[in-house]
């Protein structure tokens, strides 16, 4: 799962926030509780946490997909980082 990026199905997502607790390296929550995801691919030990976060989502909204060679078209600069 290394080299994969975390993606979310925006319609399935209900803003539980489980993902942000299990993968704070990539996911933070906006003021309404919905995930802002860093599209940087997960590497090494992060991959394990990413998998747990994906499996823990109560709505199964998260997915790990292969990182495309160039930046995904839908990626927007994340306004804030920790």
């Amino acid at each position: 799962m290394s080299g994969h990026i975390v993606t979310v199905d925006r319609i399935a997502c209900d803003g539980f926030g489980t993902c942000a607790q299990l993968l704070p390296e990539r996911i933070i929550l906006d003021e309404w509780g919905y995930p802002i995801i860093d599209p940087t691919p997960v590497k090494g030990s992060e991959a394990q946490h990413a998998k747990r976060a994906v499996n823990a989502c109560p709505r199964l909204a998260l997915k790990l997909v292969k990182a495309p060679h160039e930046a995904p078209a839908a990626a927007r600069p994340v306004a804030q980082r920790r």
Binding site: R10, I11, D30, W32
Partner: peptide, 8 residues
């Protein structure tokens, strides 16, 4: 259907 749109 989507939080960031609906609430945002």
């Amino acid at each position: 259907q989507c939080g960031p749109c609906r609430f945002g």
